[in-house]
């Protein structure tokens, strides 16, 4: 399977899960995962910076339209889009590439990098989304618990989805 086919498939998958499933079922008061980050964070790290910003913005914007939250997700995704190329490039230049290992680009660097990268980006994204949504209201009673719980769910979803996609569909170089 080609790169673009995989990511197209991931996009469809994310869309279906986020818009058709998660929007229509009540996972819980504290849980508002944003699983479309799977698509964005697993995008190739060597995208040009400007393209990264553009893609992140448009994906965020499209989900904004469907999640009825004009501007909030676009704004959060833009932050990730700006930061991702720097951090990804940094990781790739330091860590030795393990070509033999099939999987996402995240598996090519250190193991710890993947966890830190995913968690930090998810936390930043979710924090910004919830902050914009609530405008700081009930910060410690609602915002922070929701933020942490949702981020954890999203992280789990990303790990599971990676297993699903990168193990089920053989990644071809």
């Amino acid at each position: 399977m080609k790169d673009w086919q995989l990511f197209f498939l991931i996009l469809i998958y994310c869309f279906l899960v986020q818009v058709l499933i998660l929007e229509n079922i009540n996972v819980g008061f504290w849980f508002h995962p944003f699983v479309y980050l799977f698509f964005l964070l697993y995008l190739p790290p060597d995208l040009p910076k400007w393209l990264s910003v553009l893609v992140f913005f448009f994906v965020g914007f499209v989900f904004d339209i469907f999640l009825n939250s004009f501007g909030i997700h676009a704004s959060a995704c833009l932050i990730l889009g700006l930061l991702k190329p720097f951090i990804a490039a940094d990781n790739l230049s330091v860590a030795p590439t393990r070509d033999e290992e099939k999987g996402s680009w995240l598996n090519k660097g250190k193991r710890s990098f993947k966890i830190v990268f995913l968690l930090s980006f998810i936390l930043v994204h979710h924090f910004w989304v919830f902050l914009l949504e609530s405008m700081g209201h009930d910060f410690f009673t609602v915002l922070v618990p929701t933020w942490l719980a949702s981020s954890a769910i999203t992280y789990l979803f990303l790990i599971l989805s990676e297993e699903l996609f990168y193990k089920t569909f053989k990644f071809e170089k």
Binding site: P48, K49, W50, S52, V53, L54, F57, G60, F61, D64, F70, G71, I72, A74, S75, L78, I79, G81, L82, P85, L132
Partner: peptide, 18 residues
């Protein structure tokens, strides 16, 4: 370019939010 795009889109997004 990436920074300029970021600023433009961020302003646009926040404008949409408001």
């Amino acid at each position: 370019l990436h920074l300029i795009l970021f600023i433009i889109f961020q302003v646009f997004s926040l404008t949409l939010v408001v």
